[in-house]
Amino acid sequence: MKRFDNLSPGLGKWLKVFFLLCGVLVLLDLVVNKHGEHWWNFFGFFAWYGFAACVILVLVATWMRKPLMRDEDHYD
């Protein structure tokens, strides 16, 4: 727990509820009939796509800091 340390001690409990909800949401895919015949209509596509998109987004953005980041007063 590196960055969440400063938050209230009840956070762990809320995170468990959140993880549980994530699990339930993926399992919903088993009962919901999806529209149309698309290659992405497989189990949990939107879940893993959302997760992967954000991880890639953050990692690439962090890497972008190397060439792009300057001092606050760079243009002053």
Binding site: M1, K2, R3, F4, L15, F18, F19, L21, C22, L25, V26, L28, D29, G44, F46, A47, W48, Y49, G50, F51, A52, A53, C54, V55, V58
Partner: peptide
């Protein structure tokens, strides 16, 4: 699903 797992990614990256 998309939004919850985006949030999950945030939580995981923070942890």
């Amino acid at each position: 699903q998309l939004l919850f797992f985006s949030a999950l990614a945030f939580v995981w990256l923070q942890l």
